[in-house]
Design a protein around this nucleic acid. Structure first.
Lengths: 162, 162
DNA sequence: CTTCATCACTTCGGATTGCATTGCTAACGG
DNA sequence: CCGTTAGCAATGCAATCCGAAGTGATGAAG
């Protein structure tokens, strides 16, 4: 396989991210606990080589292996997406939002919102407090719009394996 | 441990989801590959019991253990959030959207959008085609608004461990 | 009260896997 | 030509995984 495990991609990937690493990621998107040896057989590497790559990918922040759930199913939580518009530079506002514990997802976007922010709360009161007292109060935040989650319908991570 | 591993929660959780299972999920949110024995020591169960619970949680669809990445970092992708408004019943539209491969996230929400839909595409043309020809064409979809992702700033799954 | 079934957990042993180490090869720069 | 670095394969031992079997508690039926 892959005599050219060097980049053939014109630097569109993160450094050191070749097609072999992509194949490893695909394997782990299907099952995060798949043994290294099985992955190695699938991508044409030894067990140790796979392990080293996985470790490096995680250290670089390219990939993380975690349990994901539907917070609403797990119970004690209210969840919402916030559309945020910003005055001035977007990045510092994104950074400030990212530091809030209840915020689990921050994306800088193009469109009628500058930022999309997903939040997880204990209950409605907690959510209200978070939005009004802590998020709207941030310097640079011009306005927010809330979309409270009613039901999670799909949540997949296997887009790498289409 | 926990003489009352029966529900003390008034049915707010999915069936069979007690505080021990929550503790297991927390462990795996920190590290999806943590050994069962280590988890068992942390939550006060034997290795085998943890293994049985994790298996059941995955079978029930409560939890999945996967690799997650930033698609934009991995390279060959355009990503966006779509706000969708619907005529009539929302659920069948959500189902139809969930069946599309490029759609990785579907939430039924309250607010000026009925649905929030995250999509992952190869490039701009692919995205355009998906939105105009396949999503807007779905029966029941009244309108869509797009937020193209510029940069992912935060993505965590450890909300269970605050 | 007894019996039977179920459920969650534990214990146990063998098979598998993870991991640190070692050595090999190729690529690069002086 | 030599030294350095990086990535991978191979090896051996410890740790982990996994299926099977056993135990005790609970609840329902006779």
């Amino acid at each position: 396989m892959a005599r050219d495990s060097k980049n053939t991609n014109g630097d569109r990937y993160a450094p050191g991210l070749d097609e072999v690493s992509l194949a490893i990621i695909e394997q782990l998107q299907e099952d995060g606990r798949r043994p290294y040896a099985a992955i190695g057989k699938a991508v044409g590497l030894s067990e140790a080589a796979v392990r080293q790559r996985v470790q490096k990918l995680q250290e670089q922040g390219v990939m993380q292996i975690v349990a994901v759930t539907d917070p609403l199913t797990v119970g004690f939580l209210r969840q919402a997406m916030l559309g945020v518009t910003v005055d001035g530079d977007v990045e510092p506002v994104a950074d400030a939002l990212a530091e809030i514990d209840e915020v689990d997802y921050v994306v800088i976007a193009a469109g009628s919102f500058d930022l999309l922010v997903e939040v997880v709360c204990q209950d409605d009161e907690h959510l209200l407090d978070l939005i009004n007292k802590r998020i709207r109060a941030l310097p640079g935040v011009r306005s927010t719009e809330s979309f409270v989650y009613l039901k999670l319908r799909k949540q997949t991570y296997t887009w790498g394996t289409r």
